[in-house]
Amino acid sequence: MSDYNDADDHQVSSSKALASRALDAGRRDLLKKAGAGVALYGAGAMFNLSRAEPGTKTVNTSREWDKVFPESDKVDHRKVSFQNRYGITLVGDLYSPRNAEGKLPAIAVSGPYGAVKEQSSGLYAQTMAERGFVTLAFDPSYTGESGGEPRNVSSPDINTEDFSAAVDCLGLQPGVDRDRIGVIGICGWGGMGLNAVAVDKRVKAVVASTMYDMSRLFARGYNDSVTLEQRTQTLEQLGQQRWADAESGTPAYGPLMNELEGGEAQFLVDYHDYYRTPRGFHPRAVNSNGSWTVTNPLSFMNMPLLTYIAEISPRPVLFIHGENAHSRYFSETAYAAAAEPKELMIIPGASHTDLYDQMDIIPFDRMTEFFNQHLVA
């Protein structure tokens, strides 16, 4: 793990992703039959087999503040890099309480799915640092400033490992008590975080905020609406896409994320209002300025992330979800499968994206109490 300051080696010019604007009528019909569910995260792109280049990976090596939230004067911040178990270099923002002394508890933070550390995870990390924790918000492999090729792809295994690598990084910090480390996973990284904590016994407590189970989403669609016939058809098309990718030597990319054409469900409008407006836009985020590979869903479709969620116990789990979130059922199902000690906190009136950045809605007080109680040596 090292400070990230090698500007000369990592300067990369950025280019905006090119993507097709619409699916044809037959593909739209197929998506509707599949519950329109997986379209948001790229499984909809599996029906669009045209090619589009991803946004080129860029690295911010300056000390200028490049987050979508204001910088706190109560926190010290620096960029760090570290490697996961597969040798991929990850980049993160390390936040520490200003003028802190002694060894402090620490929290690794990532998500949402398709976001970067300059968005929600950084906001969570900085806020929890204000409350006495050393925190690390990081870009998962293949996204943001972190390494990995091709760009804009995800993996239930490698991205689970990313959380454990972040724990490695935190535990090597001289101001961190490595026996008092927790995890916060947001949206799709809520499921990844839970999966990581189930296998990584070093982590003492975990929060899953506005959680998605990405393997369930890709395999079954929203609200488990995809039939076996539709799943089989999807896998057939993905197999054909693999031939096309192999022939070209590069992966195809789906449509630009979170564009609106009119008539979308409210939760899709909510995603647009976060990722594609000044509220949360960041040029390195897949969801703001790029697209996933068309074959991105493959490994998730037969590798359930939360198979061993009960093995997090006896370490505690706190699930946080909005009352009006379209994704609420993911947390409710995971909560039912988890073992005690566990807590499900439903935020009245909140949507899925409210828990990305709405400071008057995200229950930071409860998270602080939770980690203060459970991050004990």
Rank of each mutant, 00 (worst) to 15 (best):
S2K: 11
D3Y: 09
S13H: 13
S14M: 11
S15E: 07
A36W: 06
A39P: 08
G44V: 08
L49Y: 11
R51E: 06
P54C: 04
K67W: 13
V68S: 13
E71Y: 06
D73E: 05
V75Y: 03
K79R: 04
Q83D: 05
N84Y: 01
Y86T: 08
I88N: 03
G114N: 08
K117F: 09
Y124N: 04
Y124I: 15
Y124M: 06
A129G: 09
P140Q: 10
Y142W: 12
P150R: 00
N152M: 11
V153S: 10
T160I: 08
D162Y: 02
S164G: 05
L170I: 14
G171P: 13
V176A: 12
D177P: 06
R180I: 06
V183C: 10
V183Q: 11
G185Y: 00
C187F: 02
R202E: 13
V203Q: 10
A208S: 13
T210V: 06
M214K: 02
A219Y: 10
A219E: 14
E229C: 12
T232R: 11
Q240C: 05
W243R: 06
E247Y: 13
Y253Q: 01
G254S: 13
P255K: 00
N258L: 04
E259Q: 05
L260E: 03
V269L: 01
R276Y: 03
F281L: 09
P283G: 11
N287Y: 13
V294G: 13
V294S: 03
N296K: 07
F300L: 14
L305H: 14
L306W: 01
I309Y: 00
P316N: 12
A325M: 02
A336D: 12
P341N: 01
E343Y: 00
L344C: 07
M345S: 14
I346D: 04
A350P: 08
A350K: 02
H352F: 01
Y356P: 04
Q358P: 10
D360P: 07
D360I: 07
M367Y: 00
H374Q: 06
H374W: 05
